[in-house]
Computed example of a mutant assay.
Amino acid sequence: MAIIRLDHVTAAVRDLDAAIAFFEALGMTVEGRAPIAGDWVDRVTGLEGTRTEIALLVTPDGHGRLELTRWDSPPGTAPTPHPAPVNALGWANVMFAVDDIDAAVATLAAHGGAVVREIVRYEDAYRLCYVRGPEGLVVALAEPLG
Rank of each mutant, 00 (worst) to 15 (best):
G27T: 06
G27N: 04
M28H: 02
M28G: 01
M28T: 04
V30Y: 01
V30S: 06
V30A: 03
V30E: 15
G32E: 05
R33A: 09
A34M: 15
I36W: 03
I36L: 13
G38T: 01
G38K: 07
D39M: 02
D39N: 04
W40N: 01
V41G: 06
V41M: 12
V41Y: 15
D42V: 05
V44Q: 07
V44Y: 14
T45H: 01
T45L: 04
T45Q: 03
E48T: 15
E48P: 00
E48R: 14
G49I: 11
T50F: 04
T50M: 02
R51G: 08
R51D: 15
T52F: 02
T52H: 11
T52L: 09
E53Q: 13
A55C: 07
A55N: 14
L56C: 12
L56Q: 10
L56T: 13
L56M: 15
L56H: 06
L57K: 04
L57A: 06
V58G: 11
T59D: 09
P60D: 12
P60E: 03
D61L: 12
D61T: 11
G62R: 13
H63W: 08
H63D: 12
G64W: 01
G64S: 14
R65H: 14
E67W: 11
L68D: 05
T69M: 13
R70S: 02
R70V: 03
D72E: 15
S73K: 12
P75F: 00
G76V: 06
T77V: 10
T77W: 11
A78N: 10
A78K: 11
P79G: 01
P79C: 08
P81G: 11
H82T: 09
P83Y: 07
A84M: 05
A84R: 10
P85L: 02
N87R: 03
N87C: 00
N87M: 00
N87H: 13
